[in-house]
């Protein structure tokens, strides 16, 4: 609970800075304004991001652009079935130190501020679970020694939704640690035309550095100071509660509902969105805007719902539709308008 709120000046400066970040990212990745907004919200909320999309839509480019614009150090890990946990966390190596042979921990690619875990569902569950501690606690334990990851630390994982052979679907516990799951959609013809006109094969697009890591951390601190009204926190609680069996009509399609971590994530994402829009408080609209990316990968659907063609995003939308923003009903003699 924060006691100190942001001043109007702070808010204005922050929103302008974030607008620059989004503009710069939009210069690198064409036609993905909404996606970029969501990515920025996710990072401001200190969340990890799971990107799902077909190859060639710019997932890697987005991560690279993010690292450039935010001034973060980034590394890319291509997940494969034979990848071992130590390959990403790092391994203790036997080294000669002052005439004495010692195991010295050699940090893996996870020791980076921005990690792109490409095709994460291709790695074995053992390797995937190696990410758990890193994502949740921002540290790695090897041979009893804890190694803290650099701050800020973000994992941006991608997975290919159509190639299922030789993949290991992420377990629910792992999915729950991603704040957002976003789908990258292909742009229209006009977007393609812009890409063709502005890109050369083999040339990487480069974005200007707008923020430094310290500034980003300061922004993330500001997110915590965004005021969350009681009515909005009540709305978040009712939304998450409605995702549980028997609590709503939409929950008939849900086998296991969202966790408290999802509710915390909703509040954090709502705060981040409010900050991005230059407001000092969260509103219902902020929550509605982030419900689908926060909940869609956390809802475990019933088999019949999958057969009916439903997915997490559609059920999350149904929840938003069903749960009224206002906790109190209006009397029958009145209507909104």
């Amino acid at each position: 609970m924060t006691t100190e709120t942001l001043t109007e000046k702070d808010l204005k400066m922050t929103s302008e800075k974030l607008a620059q970040v989004r503009r710069e990212l939009n210069q690198v990745l064409f036609g993905q304004e909404a996606l970029i907004d969501q990515v920025v919200i996710c990072l401001l909320a200190r969340g990890h991001l799971l990107l799902e999309g077909l190859p060639g839509l710019g997932k890697t480019e987005l991560v690279r652009a993010l690292s450039q614009v935010l001034g973060l150090e980034s590394k890319r890990i291509q997940f494969t079935p034979d990848l071992l946990p130590g390959d990403i966390t790092g391994n203790p190596m036997l080294q000669d130190v002052d005439g004495e042979r010692k195991f010295i921990f050699q940090p893996g690619p996870l020791f980076s501020q921005l990690v792109l875990a490409d095709e994460i569902n291709r790695a074995s569950p053992k390797t995937q679970s190696a990410l758990l501690e890193a994502m949740q606690e921002h540290r790695v334990t090897s041979m009893g020694e804890r190694h803290t990851l650099p701050e800020p630390f973000f994992v941006l994982a991608t997975q290919n939704p159509i190639e299922l052979e030789g993949t290991y679907p992420l377990p629910e516990a792992q999915l729950d640690r991603f704040l957002f799951k976003l789908h990258i959609q292909a742009g229209g013809a006009d977007v393609l035309q812009r890409i063709v006109e502005n890109r050369q094969l083999g040339e990487e697009a480069k974005g200007a550095e707008i923020l430094k890591p310290q500034e980003l951390q300061a922004l993330m601190q500001q997110v915590k100071r965004i005021y969350l009204p009681e009515v909005v926190s009540n709305y978040i609680a009712r939304l998450v509660h409605a995702s549980h069996k028997g609590e709503s009509e939409a929950s008939k399609s849900i086998k296991y509902g969202a966790s408290p971590r999802a509710a915390i994530g909703l509040a954090a994402a709502g705060r981040a969105r409010a900050l991005m829009q230059g407001r000092e408080n969260v509103s219902y609209e902020d929550i509605k805007a982030v419900v689908v990316p926060v909940l869609q990968h956390r809802l475990v659907l019933e088999y019949h719902a999958k057969l009916e063609g439903l997915d997490g995003s559609k059920v999350a939308e149904a929840l938003v539709e069903e749960v009224p923003a206002h906790a109190d009903k209006l009397p029958p003699v009145l209507k909104e308008g």
Partner: peptide, 12 residues
């Protein structure tokens, strides 16, 4: 966008 609720609580 809940400016009134926030103002009621002294925020903004």
């Amino acid at each position: 966008n809940h400016r009134l609720v926030s103002a009621l609580q002294g925020v903004g």
